[in-house]
Simulated assay, not measured.
Amino acid sequence: MRILSRFLSLFVVLVGATNAMADAPVVVPPDASVAGVSQADWSQRWWEWAGSFDREESPVADRTGALCGSGQSGDVWFLAGTYGTQRTVRTCRVPRGKYLFFPLINYVVVRRPDRATSCEAVASSAASITEGVSALVLEIDGVRHGDLHRHRLATRGCFDIGARTPERIRVYPAAANGYYVMLQPLPPGRHTLNFGGALPSMLQAVTYSLVVE
Rank of each mutant, 00 (worst) to 15 (best):
W47Q: 06
G157L: 04
A135P: 06
A32K: 15
A20V: 14
G142C: 10
C68K: 03
R156T: 13
T82R: 15
S70I: 06
G16M: 08
A205Q: 15
R150I: 04
R2P: 08
Q184I: 01
L153W: 03
S38L: 08
V27H: 10
A127R: 15
Y83I: 13
S201K: 11
Q44E: 03
L104S: 04
L4M: 09
A116V: 12
A32N: 13
P29D: 05
F53V: 05
S73H: 13
C68M: 07
E167S: 05
D114Q: 11
W77G: 05
A66V: 12
A80F: 04
P29E: 02
V212W: 00
A121W: 05
D54F: 13
V37N: 00
F7T: 07
I105E: 03
A116T: 11
L8A: 14
F101E: 02
I3Q: 14
P187C: 10
L104C: 06
L193K: 11
R55H: 02
P113M: 12
N177Y: 00
D31L: 08
D62L: 09
L14W: 08
N177H: 12
G97D: 05
L8D: 01
G142I: 09
Y179P: 01
E139D: 02
M1I: 09
P200H: 09
Y99A: 04
A126P: 08
A22C: 12
G162D: 02
V76S: 05
I169R: 15
F159G: 00
S58A: 12
T91V: 10
P185I: 01
T88Y: 09
L153A: 07
D75E: 14
P29Y: 06
S5A: 10
G74Y: 06
D75W: 07
V211C: 04
A135T: 11
V89A: 15
D62E: 03
G142P: 06
N106H: 08
P103W: 00
P173F: 06
L104W: 04
L210V: 05
H151V: 05
Q204M: 11
A61H: 09
L79R: 04
V206E: 00
S9Q: 13
W77H: 01
D141G: 07
C68T: 02
V34W: 10
G132V: 02
V60L: 10
A66K: 15
Y99N: 04
R152H: 15
W49P: 06
R87S: 09
P200C: 13
F101K: 02
S43P: 10
V212I: 15
W77N: 00
V109I: 12
Y107Q: 09
I169Y: 06
G51R: 12
D31I: 02
A32T: 13
S209K: 12
I140M: 13
P185F: 07
G84D: 03
D31K: 13
H191C: 04
S128Q: 14
P188E: 11
A66Y: 10
S128G: 09
F78L: 02
R144F: 02
Y172W: 10
Y83V: 15
A163D: 01
V143I: 14
D62F: 05
A154R: 13
A50D: 04
M1P: 11
L193M: 07
M202R: 14
D31W: 05
T130A: 10
S209Q: 13
V110A: 05
G162I: 07
S125T: 12
W42Y: 08
P188C: 08
